[in-house]
């Protein structure tokens, strides 16, 4: 499962294409062209209504065009970063085109219904004027996610090891886990809000539950599936139970644990936003709901982009950690 995830999200950056023309990066030139087009349309045509940061957006698009122009001759001297840029060349072209079309359809022609579709300068305006509140929301969401995810993973991992290792633990624990595990964490919301002293604690618990359960299930499965002969070998070499758990069972089950971690990560995002929409005072989920209520859709889109970047960044980070810890497995994968 984790390999499939990586093929979809992580592996793309590693393949490289040979540059077609030595010295000049053609796709860079094209990207500079489309970005210049977006800048020119923004600057030259009048807006249907005022959106805020129109000038700034034109300047930024122009700056983007300038950067691609500069890169088109220097990219081959940038080593690994250059190769990644070249790989994503077609994306940069399409991105410029997308900006131009988006700009024209919303700000310049007003074809798309107004409160729901915001032009790029509308989003930019949000970042320029509301950045402090967004930042606070990111910090609040980060705190909630961090506390929930890490406590959930810690408890889930420890519980999973115990369930996989000890028969007595498994006897009492496994049925409970099998019963509670499939219930979506958000179904617990009604109970959690009167069990816990504050909505903040309840939200932490929900995120912890969502991320901890898949980790617990997969860790337990991983530990109980460890090849018995590894234990035999370690025991004849003088290993005690502690060594068997920490130096044999846990490393052997780590590939499974990481599958659980990826699942837990995705579930934690899902629950995070739901939890923040219920009675939180700050946070990205709250920001989304608050601004939807006021029909401030530019703010909603702006927050969604921030959220997408953060979630994708965390997934990427987990891949990096996994590749570091499971390097020994590369031949098997």
């Amino acid at each position: 499962m984790s390999t499939a995830v990586e093929d979809t999200f992580g592996g793309a950056g590693r393949r490289t294409f040979a540059p077609s023309l030595p010295g000049i990066w053609r796709n860079g030139l094209f990207a500079a062209g489309t970005w210049f087009l977006a800048a020119a349309l923004t600057y030259a045509l009048p807006d249907v209504i005022t959106w805020g940061a129109t000038q700034l957006f034109a300047v930024l698009a122009l700056a983007g065009a300038g950067i691609f122009l500069a890169l088109s001759v220097t990219v081959h001297r940038l080593g690994g970063l250059g190769r990644t840029l070249v790989h994503y060349g077609p994306w940069f072209i399409v991105l410029g085109l997308w900006l131009a079309v988006w700009e024209v359809l919303t700000a310049k022609l007003g074809w798309l219904p107004k409160p729901f579709f915001s032009p790029p300068q509308g989003l930019l305006h949000v970042y320029v004027t509301d950045w402090d509140r967004l930042l606070i929301c990111v910090a609040y969401t980060g705190r909630l996610w961090g506390l929930g995810f890490f406590s959930g993973v810690l408890v889930g991992f420890a519980g999973g090891v115990a369930l996989g290792w000890s028969k007595r633990f498994a006897y009492w624990g496994m049925p409970l886990l099998k019963l509670i595990g499939p219930v979506p964490a958000s179904a617990w919301i009604p109970c959690t809000f009167f069990i816990f002293p504050s909505t903040f604690h309840a939200s932490i618990f929900l995120v912890a539950l969502a991320s901890g359960i898949p980790v617990a299930i997969l860790t337990a499965a991983g530990v109980s599936q460890v090849n018995r002969s590894f234990y035999d070998v370690a025991r004849t070499l003088g290993a005690d139970n502690r060594f068997l758990i920490f130096k044999v069972a846990i490393p052997a089950s780590l590939p499974n644990v990481f599958v659980g971690l990826f699942m837990g990560l995705y579930y934690s995002f899902a629950v995070l936003v739901v939890a923040e929409m219920l009675g939180a005072k700050f946070g990205l989920g709250w920001y989304l709901q608050f601004n939807t209520a006021y029909s401030a859709y530019a703010n909603v889109y702006a927050a969604l982009i921030v959220m997408a970047l953060i979630c994708a960044g965390l997934v990427r980070l987990l891949f990096v950690v996994r590749d570091r810890l499971l390097g020994w497995q590369k031949g098997i994968l």
Binding site: S229, D232, P251, W328, Q329
Partner: peptide, 14 residues
Amino acid sequence: RILVFQDATLFPWR
């Protein structure tokens, strides 16, 4: 007294 198995049974993570 150490046992060597038919499969090398090396720990793959080491």
